[in-house]
Design a protein around this nucleic acid. Structure first.
Lengths: 256, 256
DNA sequence: CGGCCTGTTGAAAACTTTCAACCACAGTGG
DNA sequence: CCACTGTGGTTGAAAGTTTTCAACAGGCCG
């Protein structure tokens, strides 16, 4: 079976054999988590990263007053670097939304990837930048729009991700989140999320049936709430060339 | 004069000669902008990045309804990669807050850095992750706290950055932002920013005199609003060794 | 001097939260 | 099999926060 991270990167560029091999080496240590399980806690010491092989997770923080902010969701092919690589601890709590399979890798093995495959390192930097923009989009949504728009934007965001990573066809998908979760992601109370969802339903652009969400007119809804899909394309024209074979041999010889 | 980016990176690790040399080559093309000038517009095609040599800037987006969200501020030593490297266009408008000097470099030269100096590439990835967490902190502030807390958090955030990049001593600093700007950064109207600032002043934790801000008790204010300073330290223990074999010994020195 | 931008203040309107119910459903144990 | 219990969803009304609208003051500049 093809590597989750490999598949993600292959969406953007053609990988060399050596690169594909290196990526598969990152996914040696497989771990399983049940829905709702906590993988890493906020402020907990950690020196490992996770690559998502299947399932959903989210990263969140708690507030002094007991509130919670969900910062981002992780899907197949994502790496949970952002909240833990810059420090010896995790800046967020990582929770399994659905049952999921993760590959655990030591931070320092991730670091070695930058040396052995600079092009992949640069590409990961680019993907990280794209994720930063996605976070910025959420900030804009939460900071400057009303409840209905925030909820719709989150659903469109999740839908766009699923469409890419799960090859989702059609505009209906299973949403394994409570309304409290949605509220914690967009800065609303669960009651207001409920009212916002019903208001959206009443426009006819959205339908719900239990945990199932159907966006009847993706274009129209995106237009209505000013949503931009950032996941489609990531530029690769600035990347350095792939290390060629002789380069590879030199570097691995030096590394041994 | 030492390179701005070099100084930034040298805060976290000991650079080799080759690395320092490479960084200085990024800063060949110097450009000046006046306060208020726009460097890049949202959605504008661009294939260059900027390293901040002096001054302040901010990145922002406009909303359909005419509103604006300021996404982040840039200070000396920052690189404006996040909103433009992943696409052929800029996802945000880059505006000079104060008069500033920038180094302009082609995206693809930045990419080459990953190949020639993998350790620096990895370090830039780490710094980018730290910036992502800073953005996540702002999201939390905007999504889950009241006006007064948001404003205080932003001021503490800016203060923490200035303290590091400008070697600011004392707890007073010049804030070249209007109350509208502050509001656009934390998701409030300018009127409410004004009321929040006055409420903060009345607690005695903060003083204002024109554009001057003095935080009388940084600890107490940070405690009050639950602010965490993320800029102090970035982990380097996961980085690969420097490319040049003769520099290998530098790494242990950098391990702090 | 007269505009223009920024800051300030007050009061009404709008949005969101809080609080308090009630409903539906799934899993549990009698 | 069925009552019991807990979680998540739904709804209404009051309370609280923030925005909107309107007005005015001060400083800077042509």
């Amino acid at each position: 079976m093809a590597s989750a991270l490999e598949q993600r990167l292959a969406q953007h560029l053609t990988l060399s054999f050596a690169e594909r091999d290196a990526l598969q080496w990152l996914e040696r240590r497989e771990r399983h988590f049940a829905a709702g399980e906590i993988i890493v806690r906020e402020n907990e010491t950690t020196d490992v990263l996770y690559i998502v092989a299947s399932g959903w997770l989210h990263g969140s923080v708690r507030l002094p007053d007991g509130g919670r902010q969900i910062l981002r969701f992780y899907f197949v092919g994502d790496i949970t670097t952002s909240f833990s690589i810059a420090w010896g601890y995790s800046a967020a709590t990582l929770t399994a939304v659905s049952a999921c399979t993760l590959y655990e890798l030591p931070r320092e093995r991730f670091g070695r990837l930058f040396q052995e495959h600079p092009r992949l390192g640069a590409m990961l930097f680019g993907i990280s930048a794209a994720e930063q923009v996605a976070l910025a989009d959420r900030l804009t949504s939460v900071g400057r729009t009303d409840g209905q728009t925030r909820v719709a934007t989150l659903l469109l965001d999740i839908y766009s991700r699923l469409r890419v990573v799960d090859k989702l066809s059609g505009s209906a998908f299973q949403l394994p989140l409570t309304q409290q979760d949605l509220g914690d992601a967009v800065g609303l109370t669960k009651e207001h999320v409920n009212r916002s969802l019903r208001a959206l339903e009443s426009t006819g652009l959205l339908e719900r049936d239990g945990k199932m969400i159907r966006i009847n007119d993706v274009e129209a809804l995106a237009e209505l709430v000013g949503f931009q899909d950032r996941y489609g394309h990531v530029a690769t024209d600035w990347l350095p060339p792939t290390a060629n074979r002789s380069d590879m041999d030199q570097r691995s010889a030096a590394a041994e």
